[in-house]
């Protein structure tokens, strides 16, 4: 009896998904669907928040006021994106503080790209162009994700991200058109960020353990390899246009498929970084923990003030 009713609920649920009817917070959903979403959305939220750190590194050293104002606005957007996403996890019954604790205790993952250091100003260009570019490739299909609050958050995020990519490309273009030293700086940033950017799409389809189920639930709309290919195809001509070279000697255009073919990706490096051994994993988590600890007195004071004011309002009401 028990199993039959669950089976019925599950088949109704899948039929809604198949008919492209969005799932909303209070609708019945299988526990695995809920857990998959909490995992994916919280990793996404953590990535937005940790993603502020490599760029925050250059705010005080931006080359002029225009670049500085732009970078500040971009980093502020990332904080907002983290917030939309944590809010979306809360609609699934997740506890935001617990998710943040998971990040700080090393139990949660976030995008491996943010564990690479930002060594020069050109890295701000490479990140905006490649990292935000890859993020947009990933996020645009998520605007049609089956879970309503996640899809709506993604619509907002995608609208805001489009300036992020353009400002990055503009930085790269200025450097590429500048002095030989500036052009070398841009090329060096591309050399360091190209492969990590391709890894952002996650493991190859053959080894990606969540893809099949996530596609069936329409949480994901494209596989990792499909999105990675799209990214390569649009990005290679963008590099050529500003006179930069993709750091892959074997990169060729395949006329039969109308796609670029790259060298194989170094997945050992990817797993090393994902599992905590990238160049900046420790530093990133330490910075997050410190930010939370240092802000505690502000949060406590704001709460104490609110409680006190409520009490006064009750007395005078």
């Amino acid at each position: 009896m028990e199993t039959t009713s669950i089976d019925l609920l599950e088949s109704n649920f899948q039929s809604k998904i198949d008919r492209d009817i969005k799932i909303e917070p209070k609708d019945w959903m299988p526990d695995d669907y809920r857990q998959t979403l909490i995992r994916q959305i919280s990793q996404h939220a953590h990535s937005e928040v940790v993603g502020m750190l490599p760029e925050g590194n250059w705010i005080t050293r931006a080359p002029n006021l225009r670049r500085k104002a732009v970078l500040l606005a971009k980093v502020q957007d990332e904080a907002g994106h983290g917030l939309y996403l944590y809010s979306a996890t809360e609609t699934l019954g997740a506890d935001r503080e617990e998710l943040i604790d998971d990040l700080h205790e090393g139990r949660a993952k976030y995008s491996s790209i943010f564990n690479y250091p930002t060594l020069s100003w050109a890295d701000m260009g490479a990140i905006g162009w490649l990292v935000d570019g890859a993020a947009i490739m990933n996020q645009v299909p998520l605007c049609r994700c089956s879970y309503g609050p996640y899809a709506r958050a993604m619509v907002r995020v995608c609208k805001e991200e489009s300036f992020h990519q353009r400002q990055g490309y503009e930085i790269m273009m200025s450097l590429a058109n500048g002095s030989p030293e500036q052009k070398a700086m841009a090329q060096d940033a591309l050399n360091r960020f190209w492969w990590p950017a391709l890894m952002m799409f996650g493991p190859n389809d053959a080894t990606s353990k969540h893809t099949a189920q996530s596609m069936k639930w329409k949480i994901k709309r494209n596989t990792n390899d499909e999105l990675r290919q799209q990214f390569v195809d649009v990005t290679v001509p963008q590099a050529e246009l500003i006179g930069l070279t993709i750091p892959d000697e074997n990169l060729i255009w395949d006329e039969k498929t109308n796609h670029y073919i790259t060298s194989p990706i170094n997945w050992d490096e990817f797993w090393q970084v994902v599992n905590g051994n990238g160049p900046c994993n420790k530093e990133r988590i330490e910075a997050r923990k410190k930010a939370k600890e240092n802000g505690k007195w502000v949060r406590d004071a704001a709460m104490a003030h609110a409680i006190k004011r409520n009490a006064i309002n009750l007395l005078t009401a």
Binding site: S87, A302, M303, H305, R309
Partner: peptide, 10 residues
């Protein structure tokens, strides 16, 4: 959407 804050004004 939603957010967390200590009171209505904040």
């Amino acid at each position: 959407g939603s957010l967390r804050a200590p009171d209505a004004q904040l």
